[in-house]
Design a binder for these strands. Structure first.
Lengths: 336, 336
DNA sequence: TAGGGGGGTTAAAACGTTTTTATCCCCCTA
DNA sequence: TAGGGGGATAAAAACGTTTTAACCCCCCTA
């Protein structure tokens, strides 16, 4: 069980084999049009034959720009991150950049990777990042796009779903269906979207003269199981049902649906339920879930666009996406 | 719009600020216990104050081993890759390695990244990789784990779900429920799992004296919509319904469910349906879908384990995971 | 024939680390 | 007092690139 030493092919090997200097090889590979066509062709042939692949550490060490964009996530599982990552990837390629994805929930580790890899820019979707890390990135002038918080300056952009307006839309939609009493299932504590959705929802209801009692604000943590439990506890308490439930995201709404079904409550006949995000599963469960599409594929493309703008020297911006209500079977007009 | 030059803090800056040489700084940072405690403390303080972060390109250029494992995927979206990636990440951390994820469907680009980043090992889940790339990796002695194909040698391991046995399990389960006539929804063409699942399913049925007619083998391509369309076309043809449908994966099974529902066929009363993989959605739809759990979280951990074994000089292995039937509401015993 | 010019190639420096080897200085001992 | 030893620090080489500046030849022109 010995760690084998595997000699990798370097530019030096190619040079020796082709009988030229390493600068000549470099020129041949990088298409600097200064070489004799025959020399160039010979070198390329040798490189191909030896399966030469440039050591990117060497290249990036020398280069002032690496051509790499880094995406920093806390985790990938779930219905959200995969789509987002794929769309970010496409946008990077279209923009002429490479993408590298780093998973981590340790803030200083994340910063070490951003700085250490000398990425040209970073896209961050990670609630673990704190003030101190933001400050370091700013002070070192790394172009950064945040997707789950708002922070805008010369080198920082934010691309966020307008969650407050989402909450307002939900309230408006449910009010127009004639509902009068409501329940809200909260998202994760301290989460930007969670806070804003609640704010928008509550303010819109207030404008319509409606307040929500504390007992009708339940914990959901953006999770299905957590929401299921909260609603089940509520049903056990015997309090009167609300006309409608707005959950901070779709997973949560699906948990609500299950809890109501298991509790013998008919949706949408007795209670209307709606979520937010429009993940695929909302279409597959029955009843299908009314929700707000947040276009998170688009968020990826916009994030990359912002990042490339900043890499090119332009200042950061705040980009906001509005949602759109997708009516499905879990909501129905209240018959009076 | 000028590309700004951002001078990054290097070890040299720290050395100058602390009034020592760069070797001393390096020693301080890497905990080589040879420095005077005061010097060390002073240097660490300066490094912290300047937000110094080592340039990994420099470090990796020098090092013979980078401590990095690379995960190479064609895409992340969907219910599968996210979970897998997360579990690979955890296993890497536990094993003392960093993980970097690269998205790409261009085979030579993938090889360029594996070799170019000098990762200590690679995990590949990408059907785009071909013989030529496998050969290059082998010839350069890069420890590699394949998750969607079988290739085993000194530096290559494979960690795959035993799809053939999965197909057999499905057949056995449905036969025991008393079903006599079957439909199979195929996965993606040329895909390892698709081929094996079919083989296992068909062979087990054959042993029971049952053959499936060509008209009852439908295209599904592992996709929900594609499967929906195929089944809908089948219903339109007016041919007699089978007792049970086995779909090559869960997404496909869900598409079948929808098509049957929309075609007025009751599941499981008229037709039993089962899938494979046990993605979360199978629990959420109604009826919930009977399926075979493939433990793809475990696959990640096993892949990393194999990789680390090979990095330490041991030869590759074939690791096979057996599935387990998860009975749910979409299957029922045939009443005779 | 001397000088200039230019096409083709190479030498050398630089990027930021780590690591091996050298240096320095002080104290101890003979 | 000379020499040795050892603790602390520094110098220098090396990793694999890219790039700038230099070089070498040959041909052309004056």
């Amino acid at each position: 069980m010995s760690k084998e030493v595997n000699k990798k092919i370097t530019i030096k090997d190619v040079a020796k084999e082709a009988g030229v200097s390493i600068s000549t090889v470099s020129n041949a590979l990088n298409n600097v049009n200064v070489l004799h066509p025959d020399t160039k062709e010979r070198i390329l042939e040798v490189a191909r034959r030896l399966n030469y692949t440039p050591n990117l550490n060497g290249r990036n060490l020398k280069a002032q720009a690496t051509g790499v964009i880094g995406l920093f996530l806390g985790a990938i599982r779930g219905p959200y991150y995969g789509e987002l990552s794929d769309s970010i990837y496409s946008a990077c390629i279209d923009g002429g950049y490479e993408l590298e994805i780093f998973l981590s929930s340790d803030p200083s580790h994340i910063v070490a990777n951003i700085l250490g890899h000398r990425v040209d820019g970073a896209i961050i979707l990670n609630s673990a990042i704190g003030k101190r890390q933001e400050e370091i990135l700013r002070s070192q002038g790394i172009p950064t796009v945040y997707i789950d918080r708002i922070l805008v300056d010369d080198k920082s952009s934010s691309v966020v779903f307008d969650s407050k307006s989402g909450g307002e839309q939900a309230a408006k939609f449910l009010l127009e269906l004639g509902h009068k009493s409501f329940m809200y299932i909260e998202g994760e504590d301290d989460n930007y979207d969670s806070i804003e959705r609640r704010k928008g929802f509550f303010e819109a209801l207030k404008r319509a003269g409606i307040e929500i009692d504390k007992d009708y604000i339940l914990k959901g943590a953006f999770e299905r199981q957590r929401s299921y439990n909260s609603v089940t506890d509520f049903l056990d308490s015997g309090k009167p049902l609300p006309d409608a439930v707005f959950a901070a995201n779709d997973l949560s709404a699906i948990g609500v649906l299950e809890a109501l079904r298991d509790g013998g409550v008919k949706v949408p006949e007795q209670v209307s339920v709606m979520g937010c995000d429009d993940i695929e599963t909302t279409r597959l469960v029955s009843p299908s879930v009314t929700t707000i599409r947040t276009f998170f594929e688009k968020q990826g493309a916009l994030a990359v666009e912002q990042l490339i703008r900043m890499i090119n020297g332009e200042p950061g911006e705040l980009v906001t996406l509005k949602g759109r209500i997708i009516p499905r079977d879990s909501t129905i007009a209240k018959d009076l």
